[in-house]
Design a protein around this nucleic acid. Sequence first.
DNA 1: GAAACTAATAGACACTTTGTTGCATAGTTA
DNA 2: TAACTATGCAACAAAGTGTCTATTAGTTTC
Lengths: 201, 201
Amino acid sequence: MSTTSPRTDPRVLRTRQLIREAFIDLLQDIELEKITVNRIAERATINRVTFYLHYRDIPDMVEKIADDMIQQIEEILNDASNESPVRDKDWPILYKMQKLIEHIADHSKFYKVLLASKRIPVFTDNLMNLMIKLITERAQKRESAAVVSATRVPTDIAIWYGSSAFIGTIVYWLREDMPYTPAFLAKQLSLLFRLQLPDTN
Amino acid sequence: MSTTSPRTDPRVLRTRQLIREAFIDLLQDIELEKITVNRIAERATINRVTFYLHYRDIPDMVEKIADDMIQQIEEILNDASNESPVRDKDWPILYKMQKLIEHIADHSKFYKVLLASKRIPVFTDNLMNLMIKLITERAQKRESAAVVSATRVPTDIAIWYGSSAFIGTIVYWLREDMPYTPAFLAKQLSLLFRLQLPDTN
DNA sequence: GAAACTAATAGACACTTTGTTGCATAGTTA
DNA sequence: TAACTATGCAACAAAGTGTCTATTAGTTTC
């Protein structure tokens, strides 16, 4: 559902957009369990049958929306890899984090409801997987192999710890309606994270 | 639903136990969204109507089960406060963490499904709130006021960071079927956590 | 711009789930 | 034993689900 390759019918895009917005909108008011295809269709001003032309059921829709989210974020992280300022070359994860947090702030309505207020597991899960992948890659590049050795804490535990801390902090920051700027939050996260890496300290 | 004060009718206890077990059991096989009162009643070998005698609906049941869970954990943490060995007096949170993780290990079937495999938000949320409370108290007692000052990271961010890291690590440890002993995991967590507190390092 | 294609609408269908009722039965407590 | 109360049973209206067929409307291609 995240394909745009062979040019998609604008009606399809429009419908999916409407469904998506209606869903986010409904989530502001009611619990996920109480959301029905009926209500979504009504709010999106589409026919109920049309919903089934796009998604098997509500969990399927949620999953597809989560996939889109992850794809967007991956693009942002990739872009950040290239345009990263020289001064951050020794610590590129800071720049990536900042870009990610800025993106989340730009779409805070979306992320707040799916990640923070109602906590829909698949979103947190996907984001966590992405973060684990990111940190693991860094660790393997030995750019921060210290995560492993220096603290004598097993790699996997250190990675679980760091990834959960990153995402969790962002979630709470969202819940509190973003009391710090993305740049500041990214900086604090990198400070705390750096502490796990005595080598580079 | 966590009351046992004026001695509860054994039939009530039996029924709630059956419902609880049926629910955990069902969650091993199917997604939360697909679980119906019908199925729970069937698996629990009780009448569907009986379910409604105890819970308003499924979300209500989940919430009550989560409440019971938190109450149990609070008792464990309180007990740990008293019986904490003298040598850990300067760092009692380690002992508490170990007791908590041991408890989770003892009921791993329960916690794995509710916290790790299917991630039912209310459980993680409640546990997170408890952890935040715990860390905040420590911080206020100035026992580890360093969380605040030493790293120059704002208190709330440091607390979000630490709490998320704690719970997240335990969740991943559960997902991986507990590859370390509770004592070892608690030790590693305290090592990583201590790093946030340069004063005591 | 007309023709071919495809998405969305509308109404209807069998089916499941929900939450509630009144009444009968069985277990619990005093 | 008697009073009480939890559970079981049958049935109900209401709502939601997922699917079908036929029709309308928008998009793309030549």
